[in-house]
Design a protein around this nucleic acid. Structure first.
Length: 868
RNA sequence: GCGGGCGUGGUGGAAUUGGUAGACACGCGAGAUUUAGGUUCUCGUGCCGCAAGGCGUGGGGGUUCAAGUCCCUCCGCCCGCACCA
């Protein structure tokens, strides 16, 4: 139309619409019982400094859902807050001499501004930060309530100890068995710490997974495995020393009581009380125990460490075989935290036991063999047989299946009084004490006379003192001159505050509850608001939280139910786990990592890749494979820069196109410019068309020419398709449909009023469908099309059913399963007609070469397969 | 070690219940227009082959008229493992 090119000024336009939404409080959520609610939540960010592309992806996805559900008439709650306590703030304090509070709030300010530049439909009036005493006072109160309800208790637990810094280390701070700052070999120490009784709900947490049908199957599976319910038996073994004198009983838990006859040794955890006892008079054993403690507390470390054992001066009497005794070891691969801290080793049917038995020359007896194997020749000497099979070499169990044998042997053990069938969980109670400053104080007081006393409710919150120093490692609360010294609330005598703080997973276990009434001072939430908004209808976040955060939140919800705060069972009705954002890595000749902006691609002489060189001196750069964006490898792209250069809509559009949201996304410059060009194209299509379109509200013509009907079909099919795609989180497919619709619209050059009407209809549909993804541009185009209302307040378009079905279908014709041609047939043609049409196809006749078909398979509307 | 996942053109990825593999996009090639602050438009583009045709969804095997999809087996990569959040 016009010879002057139309350009979309995204900077001005995006700012304009954000201001309008903000001023009109478009996204403010208010309880309204007359309307159905929809609670969309993305995992709140840790304020690490600046937002990264992972945030952009996460919040874009959530915003698509939030805007879509608003358009569909839901009363949407879409809040944002800050997971503001945590280790990095203390690290910053140590390294940069900034107070954790200052560092955290500065980061929040920066990141809030960044998030706001994305044009997210958030209700910022509900913003919260978990480090704010007005937030954590409620979790202190809840902690005390849980304690009173018997859900919190103290017990000894191991921590990683740095002997140089005299401080407790997080698993993350232990690198190859050494302290991250000191390099000193890490030791394990025992401390008395607070735990929450998550195991009290183990069975319910497992059972209710089955009802979470809007959760990814893999997350439910991971949680089920984590809870790890297993049926097994506790077996009591009589211990003796070499002379046969009674040395007490040993209790062993096993999930494989059916292999009891294959037991050739017993092994105790290095932390088992019996081992501790024996070690008192055994230097070698002391050394062994000390050696075992050098492994950190992480399960992966313990289980990959070389299996070593120490033979104890004990024998265990086999409970079913008179006269048979087993050697007893202390072993580093037996976990004190699981079962009874002791196992019997059946090397024939367990990988770890096999490795151990081979190493220490212990006998290996097969007691299960595959069905149909020959018992005389079946051997497990080379490797254990861990699958289901038939029991052998096991007295009264011979010939039974594994399952039947388990039941029979448990019955026998119970009869004899030497064992008991039990259910065991892998899940351990939640250890919530942290020896750190930047967390919510545990509101208890230690009194020499009264013991552990809760801080009275009127004294809550227990606030963190701000005058702390980070000159030394360790917990500044512990060495604060005055903070911990208080008088006992019960007896008034001198007492001390608990200086441990709560695990930050607690902060994130109820923030979604708090969002329902974030400004209420007297309680964590208003019951009516909570009942209205909860549960979260759609929760979105990284799969790295699949187990811990989500399980702890499910627990916390139940704990609140236990103390009558809610009647809610599950906090998250729907869950979606998004993939990571990745980028190529670049290395200079000297091996140092380079930022993407420090390298460039030189065009090659004839097409194809080209070389990658350093911008500064054109030296060659080694290109590594794409990995998760991380500061350490410098393969990061700053969202701020992208939003400044291309606009928020481009960043959002790129995040949604191409990659399925649950999979990893590869960030590429080409992809961004592609998204940018499409924004420009859309603006041009709409701007150029506007002059020829009928005004808003022009009545629908009675009839349409064929081309107009085709356009209307495309548009209405897009409504159905995009809606279904958004509901199913297939944003990349929704984007592809919008590309198609845009091309279709652009190609229609109307020459009559009905087609002009259809083009306006199609454009309006397009703009409304694109609204959740590229909200600023869509809002601008909505106005360009002549609307006075906000697109953000407009309803989702409705598809006309009649336009969704075609009257002809393309049917594939195959010869022996190989495609020979296609047919256009009326929809739902009878089978014999489809067959007749297929056999008449020249391409088929050529392949058939005069032979008569043996068989013809007809799948209506899909395929005709001729078999000769 | 245990648990979970992923693997389709040069690239990101599409593909109801097994039913035309490669939608859409990037890149690349050819052409047109001509933009000069990131151009735009048309056509082509899985591989081999002049063609007919053949081969193709990480490798190997199987079930089926028909397999990316179901089964077995092997390989590669990624994530979680309780004090990172």
């Amino acid at each position: 139309m016009s010879s002057t090119p139309v350009r979309y000024n995204f900077r001005e336009t995006e700012a304009k619409w954000r201001k309008v939404w903000d001023e009109r409080q478009t996204f403010r959520a208010r309880m309204d019982k007359a309307r159905p609610k929809y609670y969309v939540l993305e995992m709140f960010p840790y304020p690490s400094g600046r937002i990264h592309m992972g945030h952009v992806r996460n919040y874009t996805q959530g915003d698509v859902i939030a805007r879509y559900k608003r358009a569909r008439g839901f009363n949407v709650l879409h809040p944002m807050g800050w997971d503001a306590f945590g280790l990095p703030a203390e690290n910053a304090a140590l390294e940069k001499k900034v107070h954790p509070k200052k560092w955290t709030y500065e980061n929040i300010a920066t990141m809030k501004k960044q998030l706001q530049s994305m044009g997210l439909s958030l209700d910022w009036s509900r913003e919260l930060a978990s480090c704010d005493p007005s937030y954590y006072r409620h979790q202190q109160k809840m902690f005390l309530d849980f304690w009173k309800a018997g859900l919190a208790y103290r017990k000894e637990a191991w921590v990683n100890w740095d002997p140089v810094d005299n401080t407790v280390l997080a698993n993350e701070q232990v690198i190859e068995g050494k302290g991250w700052r000191t390099g000193a070999p890490v030791e394990r120490r025992k401390l008395t710490q607070w735990n929450l009784k998550i195991t009290h709900f183990a069975d319910e947490l497992l059972e209710r997974l089955g009802t979470l049908d809007r959760w990814p199957e893999k997350v439910r599976l991971m949680q089920a495995n984590w809870i790890g319910k297993s049926q097994g038996a506790r077996v009591f073994w009589q211990l003796t020393d070499a002379s046969g004198a009674d040395r007490g009983k040993l209790e062993i838990f096993t999930t494989r009581p059916d292999t009891l006859y294959g037991a050739t040794f017993a092994a105790l955890s290095a932390e088992h009380p019996i081992v501790a006892d024996l070690a008192e008079n055994d230097l070698g054993l002391q050394r062994f125990v000390a050696e075992s403690r050098k492994t950190g507390t992480a399960a992966a470390e313990i289980e990959t460490a070389e299996k070593i054992g120490y033979k104890l001066p004990l024998l265990a009497k086999h409970p079913l075989v008179p006269g048979k005794t087993l050697p007893v070891y202390a072993a580093n691969f037996v976990l004190m935290e699981y079962g009874t801290g002791a196992i019997f080793g059946c090397p024939g049917h367990d990988e770890r036991d096999h490795e151990f038995a081979t190493k220490y020359g212990l006998p290996i007896i097969p007691v299960v063999m595959p069905e149909g194997a020959d018992p005389a020749s079946f051997s497990v000497a080379a490797e254990p047989f861990v699958e289901d099979g038939i029991i052998i070499n096991s007295d009264f169990l011979n010939g039974l299946s594994v399952e039947d044998a388990k039941a029979r042997v448990i019955a026998r053990l119970e009869e004899m009084g030497v064992g008991k069938g039990t259910t065991q969980y892998r899940l351990r109670d939640w250890l919530v004490s942290r020896q750190r400053y930047w967390g919510s104080p545990i509101p208890v007081i230690h009194c020499a006379k009264c013991g552990i006393v809760p801080v009275p409710e009127k004294d809550l919150p227990v606030e963190l003192p701000e005058d702390v120093d980070f000159d030394k490692p360790g917990n500044p609360l512990d060495r604060h001159p005055t903070w911990k010294h208080v008088s006992c609330p019960q007896c008034g005598g001198p007492a001390q505050r608990e200086t441990d703080t709560l695990d930050t997973f607690i902060d994130s276990s109820w923030y979604f509850d708090r969002f329902t009434s974030p400004n209420l001072a007297t309680a964590p939430f208003d019951r009516e608001e909570h009942d209205y908004w909860m549960p979260v209808d759609q929760y979105i976040g990284g799969v790295e939280h699949a187990i811990l955060h989500l399980l702890y939140s499910r627990f916390w919800t139940r704990a609140m139910r236990e103390v009558q705060m809610t009647s809610l069972d599950e906090p998250f009705d729907g869950l979606f786990t998004q993939g990571m954002v990745c980028h190529e890595t670049y290395r200079a000749a000297d091996g140092s990592w380079l930022l993407p902006e420090e390298v460039e691609r030189t065009p090659s002489d004839k097409g194809g890749g080209g070389n990658v060189v350093r911008v500064s001196d054109k030296s060659p750069v080694e290109v590594g494979r794409s990995e998760k964006m991380s500061k350490s490898k410098k393969n990061v792209v700053d969202p701020d820069q992208i939003i400044h250069d291309y606009g928020a809509d481009t960043a959002r559009w790129f995040m949604l196109s191409d990659s399925p949201p649950e999979r990893d996304l590869e960030w590429t410059e080409a992809g961004v410019t592609g998204a940018w060009r499409f924004q420009q194209r859309l603006f041009r299509i709409a701007s150029e068309a506007i002059g020829e379109l009928p005004p808003v509200g022009t009545p629908k013509p009675a009839t349409f020419p064929e081309a107009a009907t085709a356009l209307r079909r495309a548009a209405h099919k897009a409504i159905a398709g995009v809606s279904a795609d958004i509901e199913a989180f297939h944003f990349n497919k929704a984007v592809a449909r919008l590309y198609e619709l845009a091309s279709t619209i652009d190609q229609v050059k109307p020459e009559d009023d009905a087609t002009r009407w259809a083009k306006r209809e199609a454009l309006e549909i397009f703009v409304r469908l694109a609204g959740p993804m590229t909200p600023h541009l869509a809002e601008e185009l909505w106005q360009t099309l002549g609307h006075k209302s906000l697109l953000a307040d407009s309803p989702w378009p409705l598809a006309e059913d009649a336009l969704l079905v075609d009257d002809t279908v393309t049917v594939a014709v195959q010869l022996n399963g190989k495609l020979r041609g296609t047919l256009q047939l009326p929809k739902d043609s009878p089978k014999d007609e489809a067959e007749k049409a297929a056999l008449a196809l020249p391409e088929l006749a050529r392949g058939l070469d005069g032979k008569a078909p043996k068989r013809v398979i007809v799948v209506p509307n899909r395929i005709v397969n001729v078999v000769v």
